[in-house]
Design a protein around this nucleic acid. Structure first.
Lengths: 159, 159
DNA sequence: TTTTTTGCAAAGATTTTGCACCTTA
DNA sequence: TAAGGTGCAAAATCTTTGCAAAAAA
């Protein structure tokens, strides 16, 4: 487990994580806080491999990463999303992060977060129509970001 | 490989698959047709495990299933989607299947396909706003279907 | 006949587990 | 102190690969 010489003050999000864990009878441990911070700091969803890679230097075991992600997902602190090439990645969900969706560039891998109320409304409308009770939804848009689309056009012109 | 005693006439979709394969310099084989038919017949996306399970009785090897799915996805005959619990599943994409999204019941696993033009428009609007060129998009809505929501309410009332 | 595809089995990765020891509450 | 959590290493799974035989074009 991680060294805890100093006990840094917890941010608001960390306080919220702590109470959520306790509500579910789970304990607040340095490893869980650390993994949470890693996801908070990431600008995009992270694969398990990537998370493990970042946790290892902190002395956190792979098996622990699997176990924490499983629990975090069970209590809705995180959820998984699908990146291009069938890669599963994890990220925080509200209220630990703002509700959003992704535009993922399949060329450079860049991930742009966005939120569009009309889109969410359309989903609600569909669900209502089918008598479906929504607990979560995921929208992943794949394609090319501006830069890559430009590079792609130039490459085509060049040949 | 599968027994090919009789050579059944190919459906329109299969003809299309055949020409798509040829366009990409790939061959039309019984195994590929079989996997294609399996996805066509499925009412919901199938995990690799599920696909393998259905192919095995037909004498198709697991390694072959992996290889075919990889190629099908590369030439956009299939794509992967994420079901609840982080399970990756495959399904056909247009023009091999109609464009649609999913409402997935996390209790009974039922999958309802839907299509909503407003939703697609909202995605296009967002993409345009970010100068993003969309090649594909995926919308997965998780929650409870009517029956399961009802069962869930009754269970709560009962206790 | 040439080029792909597939089966098989081995090699590699990824995940899951049991259990003893350590922490949190 | 009781109930969890974590490290470690082994087991179980899942994927990928090399290569020879079989099939498609």
């Amino acid at each position: 487990m991680a060294d805890a010489e100093e006990k840094p003050s917890r941010s608001g999000a960390e306080q919220l994580l702590a109470s959520t864990l306790r509500e579910h009878g789970l304990r607040v441990t340095p490893d869980r806080l650390q993994l949470f911070r890693t996801l908070e700091a990431a600008s995009a969803p992270l694969s398990i491999t990537e998370i493990s890679k970042r946790m290892e230097p902190l002395g956190i075991n792979q098996a622990t990463v699997y176990r924490i992600l499983e629990r975090f997902t069970a209590i809705s602190v995180t959820h998984s999303v699908l990146l291009p090439h069938g890669v599963v990645a994890y990220e925080l969900v509200p209220p630990f992060a703002e509700h959003h969706h992704h535009l993922v560039c399949s060329r450079c891998g860049r991930v742009i977060n966005f939120y569009n109320p009309e889109l969410d409304q359309a989903i609600q409308a569909v669900a209502k129509n089918y008598g479906f009770t929504v607990t979560s939804h995921m929208v992943e848009v794949h394609g090319l970001c501006t830069e890559c689309a430009k590079a792609h056009r130039e490459k085509k012109t060049a040949r």
